[in-house]
Every structure is written in C-alpha cells, then in structure tokens.
Design a protein around this nucleic acid. Sequence first.
DNA 1: AAAAAAGTTCCATAAAATGGAACTTGAGTT
DNA 2: AACTCAAGTTCCATTTTATGGAACTTTTTT
Lengths: 261, 261
Amino acid sequence: MSILSAAVDVLRCFSSTRHDVTVTDLVSLLGMPKSNASRLLRAMRDEGLLETVGDSKRYRPSLLLNQVGHIYRFAASLIDRADSVIGRISDEVGHTGYISVRRGTDIVGVTAHPGRHALRVVTSIGDRIAAFASSTGRALLARLPEDEVRRLYAGGFVPPSDTAPQDLDELLARLAVTRREGYAESHDEAVRGVRAISVSVGDPTTGDEVALCISFPAATVTPEERLAIIRSLGEGAAEIAALTRDPLFIPLHPSIAETAP
Amino acid sequence: MSILSAAVDVLRCFSSTRHDVTVTDLVSLLGMPKSNASRLLRAMRDEGLLETVGDSKRYRPSLLLNQVGHIYRFAASLIDRADSVIGRISDEVGHTGYISVRRGTDIVGVTAHPGRHALRVVTSIGDRIAAFASSTGRALLARLPEDEVRRLYAGGFVPPSDTAPQDLDELLARLAVTRREGYAESHDEAVRGVRAISVSVGDPTTGDEVALCISFPAATVTPEERLAIIRSLGEGAAEIAALTRDPLFIPLHPSIAETAP
DNA sequence: AAAAAAGTTCCATAAAATGGAACTTGAGTT
DNA sequence: AACTCAAGTTCCATTTTATGGAACTTTTTT
C-alpha cells in the first residue's frame, strides 16, 4: 500500500466539522500506528499538502490544496456555468441556491449561494447526503435508465423521513414524475420545514452531471413564487443544456414552462 | 524521494491556464520518465486525487480536492490569516505591523509584530483608539456605505491633531480617497512623527473585518520604501480577500499596484 | 511534582518506486 | 485498409522508501 493512499485517507478525514487533525486523530480515525501518523503528517506538511495551525500540533489543508481545489470548477466547466446560473437565480428569488454532483448513491454540494432572506437555508459544501432522499439527488437519478437505478439501490435503503420515498417502487415512481415534469421537489426530507426544487443537466463531452437547486423555508413561499423558481431553474438548465448539447436533458413540461403574463 | 512529493509536483502543475494534464505534460513539465508519469497519474486517480475528463487521457483535480481545499477557508480564521500576512510583511520591511478590528467608532489592536529597527513604533494590544483618526480605522470605515458612516458620527467628533480629519466632510473625503486608492494613510495623528498605512479585508461567512497596518517613523522611510509597503499590504490583503470571497474588498488602484521594474 | 497523554525517533524488515526498453493503443495519412 | 508516428502502458531487476513495535521525549493534566 502506497503512502499516497494513506495521504488521501488523511485528506478524507477533513470535513465541515473537522477543520484540522492531530496525530491522535489519525490513530483513532484510521487505526494507523502513531509512528506512521506522525511521520505522514510531517511529510505532508513538508511537501505542502498541509500546514500547521500556528505552532501547534494541529494540521489543516494548505493554501496549495485550496488553489488546486479551486481549479476543479474551471476544469469541470459545467460546474462553473451551473454555478453562475444558480447564483443569478438565487439573487433573483432571494433563497439559497446550490449546485451538487452525484457520487454513486450520495450527493455532494459543490458551490452554494446563501439567500438574502432572514430565514434562510444553510448548506454545507462537501457534506454528503443520500441521493434518493433529496430533490437534487432525484433530479440526477432521473437521468439514469430505470434498471440502472434498480442496480444502484439493489441493497435497498432506509427512508430518513415520512415524506422521502419509502421504498424502491416509490422512488421509481417519483423519478418518473420528475422525468415528465422536468424538475424534482422535496419537502421535509433532509431538514424539517425545508422545501427544495432541483433540475439537472449534463455535459456529454466530459461526462459531468450537476443538479441546480433552490432551497427555501416551506412556510414563506407562495405558490406563485414556487412556480417562478421552477421556471427560472428550468430556463437556466435549458440554456446550459443547449450549450453542452446534453442529450439526456429533461425540459420542463410545457404546461409549467409557459411564460407568465 | 517519496511518491508524495511527485504527486505534489503534479498538483503544482495545475494553474488557471492549465486545468488538466496528460502523461506528456508531466514528462515535459517535470522531466519525469514516461513510465512514472503514466503510473503516477493512474495511482492519483485511483486514490481519488485526480479524475479523468470523460474517458480521455486527460486528468484534472478531483472533487475531493475541491472539498478539502474548501475547508482551508474555515480552518484558517480571518484573524489568523491576517496575522500571518502582516507578520511576513513586518519581517520584510522591518517596521511594526499589527492587525486591528473595529468596534463602533473605536479601533482595537488584536495582534502586533514589533519591527526590527532601532526607532520603532510600539503599539499596545487591546487599547482603543478613535477610528476616524487612524489609518486602520479609515481602512475599515471605507468598507461602509457613506450614510452608515454619517450615522456612526452623527454626534460629531473632536480631532486629536491638525492632520486628522477636522470634520465629517473631511472624513468622508478621505474615505473616498481610500476607496479609490485601496489603502488608508495617517501622519502625526495619534502619535507625532508616526506614519501608518492600512488596508482592510473581511470574511463574509463570519462577518469579521480586520485592518492590516504597517506603522513607522515618518523620517526614516523613503518614498520607494513607502510604495513597497503599500504594495505588500495590498497583495497580502488581496490574497485573503480571494480566499474569503470578500465582496467589499477594495483593491489597490492599478497605478499603485503595478509591479516595480 | 507526579502521572498521563501525546508526539517523536530508531531499527530491521517488508514493500513500493524507479527508469530503461519493449510493447500497445490511437489518431491522422496515404 | 494498411501505414506511420506520437502517446501511453507494462515489465523487470535494482534501489529506495515505508512499516510497525518499542523506547524515548515533550506536553498537558491532576
């Protein structure tokens, strides 16, 4: 086993709730001998992957990683485009917008735009949530053929709330609705009182796929506002799909898309 | 030489003009044997540091690096970052550097780095000085809209010296200059014979704002040295602003920022 | 001041990286 | 369809690096 994989294991220890690590953290998180943990952290710092916090024994990701991570957005230009679209929509409607990607059955937030409203949904970049139980996840899963979704969830799943799909059949039914309507919606699934609307779009040249999502407190949004959000998302995604020539793009159903007076 | 350092060399190949790399790129950029380049890129992808673009032979940074890089922003608090920047600059120029925050119409020093020169400005951490009559204060006030400054100073103020702003209008005029030039300057205000140059930067996620200041005896600094200080401060603050995505950041005016021959 | 926890260094052994050359793949050309 | 050249991959013996247990040092807590 290469030291590279140990180094990556260290990087995976970082999360929105763990901004830095110590030798002991590695020992307990990765079951690594103390000697290795000590040398590995030092080596990673010497190479510039990590930096020490002040002159303590705590290690955090380095500026280099910050810079390289930033390049991901441009390398995956789909993300960049989606981000600017969701940023504009978030500004318009005042609610939190974010874009996410799917990794297997998980969804990972990539960029976020906090809303303007006093009551706003806060998302944490980098956290993983279950794909089947979120609007972003279902927007992305709707791009897959049904048998591939069945294969992904061959092991079944545990619904986190009453409003999430309770079994595979319900998930497939809701994906069918998403394919017909052109958007996915969630309510009280990951977070109580929070509603979210998502659409998805892909780039066939790179194989990337992203979800664009607007998330808002269920109580404060009128039916008209909700419709406006759906239309903005649909239009934004359609613009991107036109650019990338996305063959899997699911447009809004004409009855929803038609322009308001 | 560990494979770790080779992997970091690969990461350093990425830049705003190079979003992905190939085996050949590494051969020419790093002078690495083809065999190593090929295995290294594959290993880095297998471990999750890189991902292939579509199914081409091009490699780009991975989502993992994007996530970890993102954590840097939270791991290094604004004050921490500003302190390390001002420490470096203070070392470079030999003069006293400090960082401060604003509380209403007062400025409070948070950390200080004493200079190396025999004649040095001494600051005391925790002391409060008037914001309107200091370069740090004006650097921070320049981030506010004009009417908010008017509201802060609705009760008027008493100038401590001839070179400090004498009334609200003069203060506003000097803030306008700071907004245009990207830095604030004071001379003989709080202490006679002392000149100070400040820039400011904020972190929108925490709402923190700090001023970075270099303070020196007016008599001992040449115009060239003064310009170098302004540029160092401007560059340091710009780095921090890029990290925090500070929307209020005031960059140096291009005519000042431009690199000396 | 003692005790406990955290971190570092040392060592022989086990494992992985190296670079040259041969081999395979793929894109463009005749 | 066969050819050509560039790009990428695999193989191998040798050299270099990583490993984990234990002893040691430093830091923190009681």
